[in-house]
Amino acid sequence: MSNKQPLLEVKDVKLHFPIEDGVLFKRQVGAIRAIDGISFTVREGETLGIVGESGCGKSTTARAIAQLHPVTEGNIYFEGKDLTKMSTKELLATRKNIQMVFQDPYASLNPRMTVRTIISEPLNIYVKRRLLEMSQTEIENRVEELMEIVGLSRFYKNRYPHEFSGGQRQRIGIARALALNPKIILADEPVSALDVSIQSQILNLLKDLQKEFGLAYVFIAHDLAVIEYISNRVAVMYLGKLVEIADSVLLYKNPMHPYTQALMSAAPIPDPQIEKNRKRIILKGDVPSPDKERIGCYFYDRCPKKMEYCKTHIPPMKDLVKGHQVACWLYGKKGE
């Protein structure tokens, strides 16, 4: 598995949003460090789950991969080619393989477009730029085919988004993402706006599609149980840094980073017997603002196991067991 080139490789990516001051002559007074040096890979056909609290940079990561924000530092390789150094034209041709599904099915569909226009829009754009050859009838057929794939009746294609429920809208968003036959889908909290019974329908749909089309997913969510269900590997993010990456089974069985442990113990489990006997690690305080440059561990302020050493040394990502990476001074030798 490891000798093959990964489909997507994110390498030491930093993405900082400038904080500006001044009215006419703007000058930068600081930066929000949304992503502060992360690296991971995604292989063909696998699902990488990214989990973390709000503001930790999960969504920015997805947007950086799709090149919706230019990265400040680092490289993003898709099939060996660096997306950050591509010309606009090259990027457009490559990005056909990278599609997104968004969190809010109410805001991510244009209310003035019919379902047909929404799903065919990516096709039409690529046809117009001569990156794809398709006749109007072919596009029409493709739209109908896509609607059936995601479980919508083709008779709805002339309807508008407001005529659909949240779950159905999310299906439209998925159909749109599938239109160009992508290799990887970046799903940014695709089920968090949905009810439980609808959520399981969409999760099942995503799993079926993966099997059918060999898709890779980068699946972002804050719900640990959802991530566990859908992912092969899981990355835990905190304050713009990755703190732990491992196989999903491994990570849930044996979380090593104190933050991962706290996150797991905080997530409620729908079983009163288990809930009664659980010991929770309750973290103190809130997630700090990412506007400062840090010299120590990013989790230092809230860590229940902090040591003096962590205050002044940023822990690097270390490979502990095969494929289980942790960034914490509790493990391995210090000062490496």
Binding site: V196, S197, Q199, S200, L203, N204, K207, L224, A225, V226, E228, Y229, V249, Y252, M264, A267, I269, P270, D271, I274
Partner: peptide, 13 residues
């Protein structure tokens, strides 16, 4: 229909 962390859910939800 709720996925659970404490159980391995290999199959379909």
């Amino acid at each position: 229909s709720v996925p659970r962390m404490d159980k391995t859910n290999g199959g379909k939800l």
